[in-house]
């Protein structure tokens, strides 16, 4: 395999092309009034129904750009993380897959809850990655679920390597996040949430410089895969170190 394929990837991802300055505006809907109201309402069940506990929030980078890579087992995952972030949730741009925004009801809530970036992350991954690059270059933070799908029983599925591509090529830090038991509150087949304690653990930001160095001696594909695997391992570590709650 030829080495140094990063140059080709950079061209495909338009890494060196300056993004349109007002590119982020299109994703900022309902953020002035409805979003604060939404989180004020959501905070009641999260506090008293799920007793959400947040760990490691102090290690979040002081300001964006960064990438949050979180496990995914419930439709409430993003809201649980965004609520934990407080006002800083406004710097987050979650990459939302077609599955959610094709349904009018969830599409409506996604717009209220987040600066949602609607993409076909599976079928058309290159445009999705390019949008991610633009957001990071404009100083936004990205929220991704690298598993791609909800894990029905909360176990960590393999990560798709797109997160590795974004992290290595842009060089922004990756914050691993582990959400425990959100699937017990709102599993995929449920309409109403069930009471259960939920924990959200933020890991220390991961520096991608070592992987950028590796691009000089290894094919980009292998470097992205390695980076993705390390991000997954860090999420697993968070899961292993999280205190048990009943």
């Amino acid at each position: 395999m030829p080495e140094g394929t990063s140059e080709y990837w950079r061209k495909l991802l338009a890494i060196d092309v300056p993004p349109e300055p007002d590119f982020l505006k299109q994703y900022r809907t309902f953020h002035r009034f409805f979003r604060p109201l939404f989180y004020a309402i959501v905070s009641i069940p999260l506090r008293f129904y799920c007793h959400e506990k947040v760990y490691g929030l102090e290690s979040l980078p002081e300001k964006p750009p960064y990438i949050i890579a979180a496990n995914h087992s419930s439709a409430m995952d993003y809201a649980a993380v965004a609520w934990a972030l407080g006002k800083r949730r406004e710097e987050l741009y979650p990459l939302v897959t077609r599955y959610y925004y094709d349904k009018p009801w969830s599409n409506f809530w996604i717009k209220i809850a987040a600066n949602a970036v609607k993409l076909d992350t599976v079928e058309d991954f290159l445009p999705a990655l390019r949008v991610g690059v633009k957001i990071l270059k404009l100083g936004g933070a990205i929220y991704v679920n690298p598993e791609g799908l909800r894990s029905p029983a909360g176990n960590l599925l393999p990560f798709r390597p797109g997160v590795g591509v974004l992290a290595v090529e842009t060089g922004v830090p990756v914050v691993p996040v582990y959400l425990r038991n959100t699937w017990k509150v709102l599993p995929a087949d449920a309409i109403l949430p069930r009471p259960h304690p939920v924990s959200v653990s933020f890991g220390k930001p991961m520096d991608m410089k070592t992987y950028q160095e590796k691009l000089k001696i290894k094919p980009a594909y292998e470097v992205y895969k390695e980076a993705t695997e390390e991000i997954r391992n860090r999420v697993l570590e968070l899961a292993a170190n999280l205190p048990l709650r009943r």
Binding site: M1, P2, T5, Y8, W9, L12, F125, L126, P161, G162, V165, P219, A220, Y221, Y224, K225
Partner: peptide, 10 residues
């Protein structure tokens, strides 16, 4: 899909 891109990079 990523390996597919690597083929075209090559």
């Amino acid at each position: 899909s990523l390996l597919g891109v690597e083929i075209f990079a090559a």
